[in-house]
């Protein structure tokens, strides 16, 4: 993608995020109030998410392709691409409902793919960490790493208790409850390697690789937040916050795709 194309993509993502935030802040405004507008906004959210996931998955796979076979980061980019393709499959399963009837059924077959994406993402981050350690980049002492994982683990457990209590006690059907527990738990597991990668990203500063990781990690942090909010708010029956969730997901997918694109540019330069 050219520099102009990249800037146009950023502008589209930001415009979509602002639109969904406006929808969330002023749901009674004339432009958002009627069912037709809400259907159109849901369809727009579905299309933007599909486009960003497709772009992210293809670009991550292109990054894998640009690296030599022996490069330890190559399988990590392949796993990241696989995770994004799985998320794309989930969104593709959901899109016909959103586009045709303006509904987002939950649970749906799409959840199978969303859940499937987590092992790929977690494996990708673990392979990245191993690759950086093997390449001799300073990862901190074992005690420091254990401290980070333990700190994030404690925060994750506290969050899990807060989020999962209403979810587990919810009166929805069993599959819905299982999924609403599974998403936050998987997100919290994902946060553990993310925290270690964040430590590396901070050391990369505002360098070119630092920008790659800044965008990628910010994207995954937003993804985790979105999933946790989704589970929590669905359990509480707070459907009116859906616009904020669309904004969070669009931002998350946009940042991940943007980070992968920065990496591809770096590999091509």
């Amino acid at each position: 993608m050219s520099g102009f194309g990249g800037r146009a993509a950023v502008a589209v993502v930001l415009a979509a995020v602002l639109l969904f935030l406006a929808w969330g802040l002023a749901p009674e405004a004339a432009v958002f109030r009627d069912a037709q507008s809400q259907h159109a906004l849901l369809a727009l959210a579905a299309l933007v998410k599909l486009a960003l996931l497709l772009a992210g998955a293809l670009v991550a796979f292109a990054c894998r392709d640009r690296l030599d076979e022996g490069n330890p980061a190559r399988p990590a980019w392949a796993l990241l691409a696989a995770g994004l393709f799985a998320t794309l499959a989930g969104q593709l399963s959901l899109a016909p409902y959103q586009l045709v009837s303006g509904q987002s059924p939950f649970p749906s077959v799409g959840d199978l793919y969303y859940v499937l994406s987590y092992p790929f993402f977690i494996a990708a981050f673990l392979v990245f960490l191993r690759a950086y350690r093997e390449a001799g980049f300073p990862m901190g002492s074992a005690a420091e790493r254990v401290g980070i994982v333990a700190g994030v683990g404690v925060i994750a457990v506290v969050l899990a208790v807060v989020i999962l209590r209403p979810v587990a006690a919810g009166g929805e059907d069993l599959l819905e409850r299982i999924l609403n527990v599974a998403y936050p738990v998987l997100d919290l597991v994902l946060l553990l390697p993310l925290a270690l990668l964040l430590r590396i990203a901070l050391r990369l500063g505002t360098s070119r690789v630092g920008l790659v990781w800044g965008e990628l990690l910010a994207g995954f942090v937003f993804l985790c937040l979105s999933d946790m909010l989704f589970a929590y708010l669905t359990a509480l029956g707070q459907q009116h916050v859906d616009p904020y969730l669309h904004a969070c997901y669009v931002l998350a997918y946009g940042l991940v795709a943007g980070g992968a694109l920065q990496q591809l540019r770096l590999l091509k330069a």
């Binding site: 980049f137 300073p138 050391r203 500063g205 360098s207 690789v209």
Partner: peptide, 11 residues
């Protein structure tokens, strides 16, 4: 410029 001052020096 690629991996930052801190990471370059540390590595």
């Amino acid at each position: 410029p690629y991996i930052g001052d801190t990471m370059s020096r540390a590595a």
